[in-house]
Simulated assay, not measured.
Amino acid sequence: MIDLERRRIPLPTGVTLDVTLGGPEDGAALIFLHGFPESARTWRHQMTELARDHFVVAPDQRGFAGSSKPEAVDAYHTAQPIADLLALADTLGIDRFTLVGHDWGGAVAWAAALARPDRIARLVILNAPHPLIFQRTLIDDPAQRAASQYIRAFRDPGMEAAITAMGLGTFFDTSFRNHADLTRIAAEDRAAYLAEWGQPGALTGMLNWYRAAAVVVPAPDETVERPAFIDAPFPPVTVPTLVVWGTRDAALLPCQLEGLDGLVDDLTLVRVDAGHFLTWEAPEPVNRAIRAFLSARPAA
Rank of each mutant, 00 (worst) to 15 (best):
125 I>Q: 05
10 P>M: 07
68 S>Q: 13
122 R>T: 00
123 L>E: 00
221 D>T: 12
140 D>M: 04
69 K>P: 10
198 G>R: 01
227 P>F: 14
229 F>R: 13
298 P>C: 03
61 Q>S: 09
142 P>C: 02
257 L>H: 14
297 R>G: 05
203 L>M: 04
181 D>Q: 09
61 Q>W: 06
175 S>K: 02
234 F>I: 07
234 F>E: 12
193 Y>K: 04
232 A>Y: 00
253 L>V: 00
235 P>C: 06
63 G>S: 09
267 L>I: 12
35 G>Y: 11
157 P>I: 07
243 V>A: 11
253 L>D: 06
104 W>H: 03
239 V>Q: 03
119 R>N: 05
111 A>S: 15
161 A>S: 14
32 F>A: 05
73 V>G: 08
61 Q>V: 13
2 I>R: 11
280 W>I: 04
21 L>S: 06
136 R>K: 15
41 R>C: 03
29 A>Q: 05
64 F>G: 00
232 A>E: 12
110 W>Q: 01
125 I>F: 08
167 G>V: 01
94 I>M: 02
155 R>E: 05
192 A>Q: 08
54 H>D: 07
158 G>T: 14
67 S>D: 03
113 A>N: 03
221 D>E: 15
152 R>H: 11
189 D>K: 05
248 R>K: 14
205 G>Y: 12
251 A>E: 00
178 N>W: 00
288 R>V: 13
163 I>S: 07
89 A>K: 10
238 T>R: 06
248 R>F: 02
103 D>G: 00
144 Q>C: 07
101 G>M: 01
39 S>W: 02
295 S>G: 04
231 D>A: 13
181 D>G: 09
11 L>R: 04
72 A>N: 11
62 R>M: 06
15 V>Y: 07
13 T>V: 12
177 R>Q: 08
125 I>M: 07
51 A>V: 10
248 R>W: 07
148 S>A: 14
34 H>K: 11
87 A>Q: 05
279 T>L: 15
275 G>F: 04
50 L>I: 09
135 Q>M: 03
192 A>S: 07
271 R>T: 13
268 T>N: 06
283 P>F: 12
295 S>C: 02
230 I>M: 06
185 I>V: 14
179 H>M: 09
145 R>T: 06
237 V>Y: 01
95 D>R: 15
275 G>E: 05
118 D>I: 00
63 G>V: 08
152 R>E: 12
265 D>R: 15
139 I>N: 04
153 A>K: 13
73 V>K: 10
100 V>K: 01
18 D>I: 07
182 L>K: 01
141 D>E: 10
